[in-house]
């Protein structure tokens, strides 16, 4: 899209300016050196922490005590990774981050599925099957996205306790589905609203109902937006700390909470290499999603910001 725009823009420029166009630019003009120089410096700065994490996690403790954090490892060791994954202690459990990892998987997968299912149907109802009062609820939902979580934490504790789900993974899945609802509903509503109305009407004439149109027309047409929603939710839920620490028990803590407990525990000798390996392990899932999904990730976060 952007390329097409630029191309047509250039073509226009050429037409208007004709032979009196801008001087051909020197690749090493002062302007270019300034622009690329700044961007490269900034890029290096942003990459630095990732580099430090990787380098530190591959060093032995003696080397860390002697050297500086930016120097590459002299002797590469994977022991910190093994230890972080399988042996690091939190409280009484000494089975490493693997426990948190699997907890996070067990939290993230159903939360993503449930929240997207609810929000997509909801967005579809709001976009195509408007009913009286729908807009009022939708407005409160969007405004509600700005209410600090701290205001709603305790009432939810009480609600979950009432239905016997406080401290369970199911409870946390419900919480994630609730707080994912505003942004996802907005995302889906805007997308479904942009589907041509004729399509919807034709299906109605053919006798398709609410679910028929949803499953046979809307769903197949909107796979990209489902992918965007998935990226948004997987990273968001995987990175959550606050809900995990409040609504689950130590045995069920997600990876972020366990990571924080391992690194910031006051007892024992600090093993910085293990800490960095653990940190990197926790960041790996969202990082992989980010690098693989590329532009879709950008689309997801832009959808959160730009309202339709």
């Amino acid at each position: 899209m952007a390329d097409v725009l630029t191309a047509s823009r250039d073509a226009q420029a050429a037409r208007f300016e004709g032979p009196h166009g801008p001087r051909p630019r020197n690749a090493f003009s002062r302007r270019n050196i300034f622009i690329y120089g700044t961007l490269i410096l900034v890029a290096l700065y942003y990459l630095l922490p990732l580099y430090v994490m990787v380098v530190t996690s591959l060093k032995g403790m003696p080397e860390i005590r002697m050297g500086n954090i930016f120097s590459p490892p002299i002797e590469v060791t994977f022991e910190p990774w093994v230890k972080a994954w399988a042996e690091a202690c939190t409280g009484l459990n000494c089975d490493g981050l693997s426990r948190g990892f699997w907890n996070s998987v067990r939290i993230t997968v159903p939360s993503v599925a449930v929240s997207i299912a609810i929000a997509s149907v909801n967005g579809y109802a709001l976009a195509n099957w408007k009913f009286k009062g729908a807009d009022i609820f939708f407005t409160i939902l969007i405004v509600g996205a700005f209410i600090p979580y701290q205001v709603m934490i305790y009432p939810i504790v009480i609600l979950l306790r009432e239905i016997g789900l406080y401290g369970s993974l199911t409870g946390l899945v419900i919480v994630h589905s609730i707080f994912g609802m505003p942004i996802l509903t907005l995302l889906f509503r805007n997308y479904f609203a942009s589907v041509p109305e004729e399509l919807f009407k034709a299906a109605r004439v053919d006798g398709a109902g609410f679910w028929g149109i949803y499953f046979q027309i809307m769903l197949p047409m909107s796979l990209p937006i489902f992918v965007v929603a998935m990226i948004l939710q997987v990273t968001g839920i995987w990175n959550d700390f606050l809900f995990g620490v409040i609504y689950t028990k130590p045995d069920l803590y997600p990876m972020t909470v366990q990571l924080n407990n391992i690194v910031n525990s006051v007892q024992g000798v600090k093993e910085y290499n293990v800490n960095m390996a653990a940190t990197l392990l926790t960041g790996l899932v969202p990082l992989v999603i980010y690098f693989v999904s590329g532009k879709l990730f950008v689309r997801g976060i832009a959808a959160g910001a730009v309202k339709g």
């Binding site: 900034v42 890029a43 942003y46 922490p49 990732l50 430090v52 994490m53 990273t235 995987w238 990175n239 959550d240 700390f241 972020t256 990571l259 924080n260 690194v263 800490n275 960095m276 940190t279 926790t282 960041g283 969202p286 990082l287 999603i289 980010y290 690098f291 990730f297 950008v298 976060i301």
Partner: peptide, 15 residues
């Protein structure tokens, strides 16, 4: 420049 945004605050804080 955008990749840190994919990381959690916990990871960011610890690094």
């Amino acid at each position: 420049i955008l990749y840190p945004f994919a990381l959690s605050f916990i990871v960011t804080g610890l690094v």
